[in-house]
């Protein structure tokens, strides 16, 4: 098994085990980005160094409600150990449902949709202004594009040619209360971003090779910022969760948990 494939597999297992242990929701949203996170953390991002190492790459999980996928990645990278991971959603834990910058490996607090993207554009501008080669990655959800600030920040990043910024859009077609096509249609989302001056590239958000290639082909030194429009399946890997609206919020019962683990290839 390739390193990244293994990373993605372990990430899915962590998402299910921790959601069950904490009786928490947002499982489908976390599974939907597991492959994207796996590529970023196993192949793309530089060392997740000490917080004050100014030239480290930045990753902003703008769809903060999928924080469990991020926590899993930080755990797999050795940023913290199992005992910390097991505090997910516990009283006094730094591992809440949404990421907090007080946690090592998290640069920006997110959870209020749209803000993380704007922070990331600021981070990209900061790097350009100081002549740093560090790269900024930001992962946002499709429904997050309902937020006006996403488009304010998109205009800004393109105008200032923030080539050091790569956004990834988790196009799973779902939001809290319905399918995006029914709530606020995002048809031609790539063209929308292109019209805003971005390099937009459609890809399969579960094809880890394709994701890695798209990132490696981007010119971080010069030109426009890029967005990968990653077509994903909400709840990817768990049969009864895939593309089902209620799993934005629901948590697993014992029976569902057993099926979910089997679905992703783990014997309970």
């Amino acid at each position: 098994m390739k390193k990244t494939d293994d990373f993605a597999f372990q990430l899915r297992e962590i998402i299910l085990r921790q959601s069950k242990r904490a009786n928490a929701g947002h499982i489908g949203s976390s599974l939907s980005i597991a492959d994207l996170i796996a590529v970023l953390y196993s192949e793309v991002l530089g060392p997740i160094g000490p917080r004050r190492e100014p030239d480290r790459d930045r990753f902003v999980l703008s769809k903060g409600h999928a924080a469990l996928a991020l926590y899993g990645a930080l755990y797999l990278k050795g940023v913290f150990d199992q005992s910390i991971l097991d505090t997910y959603c516990a009283d006094g834990s730094l591992l809440g449902v949404h990421p907090e910058h007080a946690l090592d490996g998290v640069d920006f607090c997110t959870g209020s949709l749209g803000m993380g993207f704007s922070f990331a554009v600021g981070a990209a501008l900061a790097a350009k202004l100081s002549g740093s080669k560090r790269r900024i990655f930001v992962l946002l959800s499709d429904a997050e594009c309902n937020e006006g600030v996403v488009w304010e920040a998109a205009l800004f990043a393109a105008h200032h040619r923030l080539s050091n910024l790569v956004a990834i859009l988790d196009l799973n077609g779902q939001q809290a209360l319905g399918y995006t096509r029914d709530v606020l249609d995002l048809t031609s989302i790539s063209k929308k971003w292109q019209a805003f001056g971005w390099i937009a590239r459609d890809l399969d958000g579960h094809d880890r090779t394709e994701i890695a290639r798209a990132i490696s082909e981007h010119n971080f030194a010069l030109g426009s910022p890029a967005i990968l429009i990653a077509k994903t399946i909400f709840g990817k890997g768990v049969s009864f969760m895939e593309n089902r609206i209620p799993w934005h919020y629901l948590s697993l019962n014992d029976e569902q948990y057993a099926v979910a683990l089997r679905d992703i290839g783990v014997e309970p």
């Binding site: 920006f108 704007s118 922070f119 600021g122 981070a123 900061a126 006006g148 600030v149 920040a153």
Partner: peptide
């Protein structure tokens, strides 16, 4: 809104 978001990224 973006102004304050940018400022946050810059100050970080």
């Amino acid at each position: 809104q973006n102004l304050l978001g940018l400022a946050t990224g810059l100050a970080e």
